[in-house]
Amino acid sequence: MKIAVLKETADGEKRVAATPETAKKFAALGATVAVEAGAGAAAGFADAGYAEAGASIGDRVATLSGADVVLAVQGPDAATLAGVRPGVWLVASLNPLAERARVDGYAAAGIEALAMEWMPRITRAQSMDILSSQSNLSGYKAVLDAAAEYGRAFPMMMTAAGTVAAARVFVMGVGVAGLQAIATARRLGAQVSATDVRSATREQIQSLGAKPVFVETVAGIEGEGAGGYAGEMSPEYQAAQAELVSAHLARQDVVVTTALIPGRAAPRLISDAQLQTMRPGSVVVDLAVEQGGNVEGSVAGAVVERHGVKIVGHRNVPSRLAADASALFSRNLYNFLSAFWNKEARRPVLDAEIGNAIRLTRDGAVVSERLRS
């Protein structure tokens, strides 16, 4: 079986879907690995490293020729995959809801497209979860980006010239990215607080030494959506949360927002009016900026200033840590394919639970229920 690893074509994408480490592991399974020349260069992985791991290096045409599985970080368009044989697997982050036309192109080309971001959040699939591995790095980098933009120190410092107060950091949304943001800000010495609509996260916040900030006046709302994600809240809860957050925001130096709802635009957590209550020089990092943004006025791919507050809206944050992000992403893909490796068939064979969850196209048609409904 031949596994092809493509050089990413998306603007600003520095990650790669396989590293020399995982290329060697695929070879140990009995697969042949072909890597497009320069695929790992932006992440610090030279072609020579792949060659030492047993992979062949060539141009895109040679890499794709005869491939059974194509690995990518962001899904390429169908034209990039021209010439692949029908039935080839495309394993990548495919953004199916926003890129429906591209998915239709995969179907027309006979490609079996597998969207790794739709991996079910079940115990046996944790090691395959690209969203968790990449979000973990995003939460870490968000705090570093905030520290770079913030004009003061994070930890309390007692010096002969006087005391520097610790920065106050508020994390909104306590998923994987939020938890890592809390931990990173704590390691930098900040006073950290956090909030989430899911009451189950209270103990997680406290376990990291941060202060939980929760709506206490609206009973019976847990905020737990499908698959461990946050769900949409009632107008009553939203109003109570806005009031609580407004009072808290005015005292914060740095805010990191991470809230996303699968298949929907990012929920608005901070309004322009709330930004006006923050003191000049404070910083807000919007990790949801590419899905519409949690912060009013945030701009994807830019750092803007409103009312004296810097709003950081970097695109593709994991790619800003390309080497580590690639290492984790590639291990997710290896863990996925190796978990279903059939020694007799000498290729992976998916079961129904995971296959039906992530498969978008097959035999020339769009087969995903989430796309057909």
Rank of each mutant, 00 (worst) to 15 (best):
P212Y: 11
V213N: 11
F214Y: 13
F214L: 10
V215L: 14
E216M: 11
E222W: 09
G223R: 07
G223N: 12
A226N: 10
G228K: 13
G228C: 11
A230K: 07
G231I: 02
E232P: 08
S234C: 10
Q238S: 12
E243M: 07
E243S: 13
L244W: 12
A247K: 13
A247T: 01
A247W: 06
H248C: 06
H248G: 03
L249Y: 11
A250R: 06
A250G: 04
Q252Y: 04
D253F: 05
V254W: 08
V256L: 04
V256T: 01
T257M: 00
T258K: 00
T258A: 00
T258M: 00
L260H: 14
I261D: 13
P262F: 09
P262G: 10
G263I: 00
R264Y: 12
R264W: 11
A265C: 05
P267I: 01
R268Q: 11
I270T: 01
S271R: 08
S271T: 01
D272T: 00
D272W: 05
A273L: 06
A273K: 06
A273N: 08
Q274E: 10
L275K: 05
L275I: 03
L275Y: 06
Q276L: 04
T277E: 15
T277M: 15
M278I: 01
R279I: 00
P280Y: 03
P280N: 02
P280E: 01
P280R: 02
G281Q: 13
G281R: 08
S282Q: 08
S282F: 02
V283A: 14
V283C: 15
V285F: 02
V285G: 09
V285E: 01
V285H: 06
D286Y: 03
L287M: 07
L287F: 02
A288C: 04
V289F: 06
E290A: 08
N294V: 00
N294G: 08
V295S: 03
V295C: 03
E296Q: 09
S298Q: 05
V299Q: 15
A300E: 09
G301Y: 03
G301T: 01
V303K: 14
V304D: 15
V304K: 10
E305S: 13
H307M: 07
V309T: 04
V312H: 15
G313Y: 02
H314T: 02
H314Y: 07
R315W: 10
N316K: 06
N316C: 07
N316S: 11
V317H: 02
P318A: 03
P318E: 03
S319H: 06
A322G: 09
D324N: 11
A325D: 06
S326L: 03
S326F: 04
A327V: 00
F329T: 02
R331S: 12
R331V: 10
N332Y: 10
N332T: 00
N332F: 09
Y334V: 08
N335R: 04
N335G: 11
F336L: 15
L337W: 05
L337K: 02
S338K: 13
A339P: 12
F340K: 11
W341A: 05
N342R: 10
K343M: 05
E344M: 03
A345V: 00
R346Q: 12
R346E: 06
R347C: 08
L350F: 11
L350W: 04
D351Q: 09
A352F: 05
I354Q: 15
G355M: 07
N356E: 15
N356T: 09
A357E: 12
A357Q: 08
